[in-house]
Amino acid sequence: MATVELTQQNLETTVTGSEIVLIDFWAGWCGPCRMFGPVYERASERHPDIVFGKVDTEAQPELAGAFRISSIPTLMAVRDRTVLYAQPGALPPQALEELIARIRSVDMDEARGGAVRTAGPR
């Protein structure tokens, strides 16, 4: 599955309509973002059951602000509308695969009982 451009118009329906959503906050002028892009795209092809979204922080400054994105690239992982991961920095392919495996293995009943944020602006 190819990556999906996320905007204010489709973010909520994408997150609420999908079990797992990875969100890459990026910008075209960002060197690490450009290096991470192909890694992210290849992962999207290996995991067609996951939505791989991209938020262009230049085109969607309101979304970047709502999520308090201060460094790019920032990768966010949402499962069942719960943010399980949100960290800046480009991941190498193996680290991205390990993150995906960890997100898949989370006991969501346990995660909801802990200090885990729900998806959406802070």
Rank of each mutant, 00 (worst) to 15 (best):
G113F: 13
A95N: 13
H47R: 12
V51E: 04
D49C: 02
R81I: 00
K54Y: 08
V51F: 15
V78C: 08
G65H: 13
P73A: 10
M108L: 05
I72C: 03
R112A: 03
S70V: 12
L84T: 07
E110C: 01
R79P: 03
K54V: 07
A77I: 07
T74K: 06
P93V: 10
V83M: 12
A111G: 06
P88S: 11
K54P: 02
V78H: 06
A111Q: 04
R112C: 01
L96T: 07
E62T: 13
E58S: 06
V55D: 04
A86C: 11
S105N: 08
I72D: 01
D56P: 01
R68E: 10
A64L: 01
S105I: 07
Q94S: 11
R104D: 03
L99A: 05
R104Y: 08
P48N: 12
P93M: 12
D49Y: 10
Q87Y: 09
V106S: 00
D49T: 05
A86R: 10
H47D: 09
E62H: 10
E45G: 09
R112I: 02
P48E: 12
K54D: 08
R79N: 04
V78G: 02
F52V: 04
E110A: 11
L75D: 05
P92E: 12
G89D: 02
P88H: 14
A64C: 02
M108K: 00
A66V: 06
A64R: 02
A59W: 10
P48S: 14
V83P: 03
D109H: 07
G113M: 12
A86Y: 10
R112D: 01
E45W: 10
H47V: 09
A66D: 11
I103V: 14
D80F: 02
P73Y: 15
R81V: 02
S70G: 10
A77S: 08
D56Q: 06
L96G: 06
L63Q: 08
P61F: 15
D107M: 00
Q87W: 06
E62L: 15
S71C: 09
D56M: 05
V78A: 03
E97Y: 11
A66I: 08
S70M: 15
R79F: 13
G65Q: 15
R46N: 13
L96Q: 10
F52E: 03
R112F: 02
P92V: 11
L91R: 09
P88R: 14
S70P: 02
E97F: 10
